[in-house]
């Protein structure tokens, strides 16, 4: 389907979606899906394919997804329009909220409230880690105990290495990637003789 929305339409659609998603972007993906259906911009199969693709490149998933869809619909100007719609207003509100906070932060009541909010932010950070790990662990579980063990080992090793002072997170990440390639290859070779079975599409909700 090749409809050609105007640049303004792209910009305003993503602006509305970005600005409506107070409390993080978990609802944004659903809104993008609805918009794509409503305007016939992407069919479901393409939507799922692009979202899976987004998982293997760096950066914020919703931003990558937005750029891909924008470019698909209207080329580079479309990419810029959708990306600016998603990012600029939301970024501005984020800065204004931060600035507002720095003004009131010395108020006793604000400080009391923050003593509740900041621990909650720690909990939410951990929750994001759990949500990222969930689909990976579920898949590993179905692949059998040895591969699940490798997954747990790599996760624990990364956490422990990071706890050692002075280890660069870049080294930890690349090490985790390399370890996964090596260990999972070894185990796969032992488990099943050549059998091209990989194909449960990787659309797990993942994080945003």
């Amino acid at each position: 389907m090749t409809l050609h929305p105007s640049l303004w339409e792209l910009f305003s659609t993503w602006l509305l979606m970005g600005i409506q998603s107070f409390g993080g972007g978990s609802s944004t993906l659903i809104m993008i899906h609805e918009a794509c259906q409503k305007h016939g911009w992407l069919d479901d199969e393409e939507f799922v394919r692009l979202w899976a693709l987004v998982q293997i490149a760096p950066g914020i998933n919703l931003v990558k997804f937005t750029l891909l869809i924008g470019r698909k619909l209207r080329g580079w100007p479309g990419l810029a329009a959708a990306g600016a719609g998603l990012l600029l207003p939301s970024a501005l509100v984020t800065v204004l909220m931060t600035a507002g906070f720095t003004i009131v932060q010395s108020q006793p009541l604000v400080q009391a409230a923050m003593r509740g909010v900041l621990p909650a932010a720690i909990g939410l950070t951990l929750a994001m880690g759990v949500q990222m790990a969930q689909p990976l662990m579920t898949r590993a579980y179905h692949e059998g105990p040895p591969r699940l063990a490798v997954h747990l080992l790599i996760l624990a090793a990364a956490a422990l290495l990071m706890a050692v002072n002075g280890v660069s997170p870049v080294v930890v990440m690349l090490g985790a990637g390399a370890a996964a390639v090596l260990l999972l290859a070894v185990i796969q070779a032992r488990r099943v003789p050549p059998q091209p079975d990989e194909d449960e599409s990787s659309l797990s909700g993942d994080d945003l």
């Binding site: 951990l126 990222m132 790599i154 996760l155 990364a158 956490a159 990440m173 985790a176 996964a180």
Partner: peptide, 9 residues
Amino acid sequence: LGIVGLTVT
């Protein structure tokens, strides 16, 4: 997996 481990720490 690496990023999850890092995030937890």
